[in-house]
């Protein structure tokens, strides 16, 4: 029942049951999701689904009519949609989580609770969006005649991996953004580079073979290609087909490492948030 604040350790109400933090986490995630689409005419659900669909529509039109990336790629549309949905989640969740601590400055300066809850809540609210979008993907898959693959349950593990990567980046970005507002622009730039460096609008097989081993180290590339394989086409090229031996593990290890480092850095920086915001 003791709580102590000393230079080494901030006062932390250890006696508080973790149950109440679960409730706080849920309420913050729900309100975050509600506020995101607040005041919109069509309501949250429509926009949640419409945004990636619209992007998909434009890209699909461009890359099947003008650039003709899609020629000869089986199920190009489905692969594109799945890639966009997964990418949109990563980009959207990290961008919003980055600003989450600064935006909740009022709360942080006035109430004590583990600061991580804010970042986790934001990432969970983005996860709601992803879930809605995946329903759309499922509908497309059902109507395209591809049918349900036996490997489909593995997709859940990939979502978990993507979530770990997203959360790790979110921790790092949210803590860094408190000190350096540059990261808004830096991350925007980084996301743009990453978008083209990842096989979203093109399949991994389009990458020249001498570059493929490098591309295959990217966890985003690995997640998207693995997802395509387990959900859509069992012949999709995955990072496992490109790299061998220890290099295979790299894209799978990166999310874990990023999450671990992100957690450590956030934990280190969190006690100063109230004074720095």
């Amino acid at each position: 029942m003791g709580v102590t604040a000393s230079p080494a350790k901030p006062a932390e109400p250890t006696s508080r049951p973790s149950k109440s933090y679960t409730n706080l986490l849920r309420e913050l995630a729900i309100s975050d999701y509600k506020v995101k689409y607040q005041g919109s005419f069509l309501g949250g659900y429509v926009w949640t689904v419409a945004k990636p669909l619209l992007l998909f529509g434009v890209l699909y039109f461009v890359f099947t009519r003008f650039v003709r990336f899609g020629d000869g790629v089986p199920n190009y549309a489905l692969n594109l949609l799945l890639g966009i949905v997964l990418w949109t989640y990563f980009a959207d969740a990290t961008t919003r989580a980055m600003a989450s601590i600064v935006e909740r400055g009022d709360l942080i300066r006035k109430v004590y609770f583990p600061r991580m809850i804010i970042v986790v809540a934001t990432s969970l609210s983005s996860l709601i969006t992803l879930a809605f979008n995946l329903v759309v993907v499922a509908v497309f898959i059902a109507f395209s005649g591809v049918g349900l693959q036996l490997t489909a349950p593995l997709f859940l593990a990939l979502v978990l991996e993507l979530y770990a990567l997203t959360l790790g980046c979110s921790f790092l970005l949210a803590a860094l953004y408190v000190r350096f507002r540059d990261f808004r622009h830096l991350w925007e730039l980084g996301l743009q580079l990453l978008f083209y460096a990842s096989p979203i609008i093109y399949p991994l097989s389009f990458v020249p073979s001498r570059w493929q081993p490098l591309f295959a180290l990217n966890p985003i590339a690995q997640i998207i290609q693995d997802a395509r394989r387990v959900l859509i086409s069992p012949t999709a090229l995955t990072t496992m087909d490109i790299n061998h031996s220890a290099l295979v593990a790299v894209p799978y290890a990166i999310p874990v490492i990023v999450l671990f480092l992100g957690y450590l850095y956030f934990d280190y920086a969190a006690s100063q948030f109230a004074e720095e915001i």
Partner: peptide, 10 residues
Amino acid sequence: KIMAGIYRPT
């Protein structure tokens, strides 16, 4: 704020 755990003492 220090009592509440928001700031840590120097």
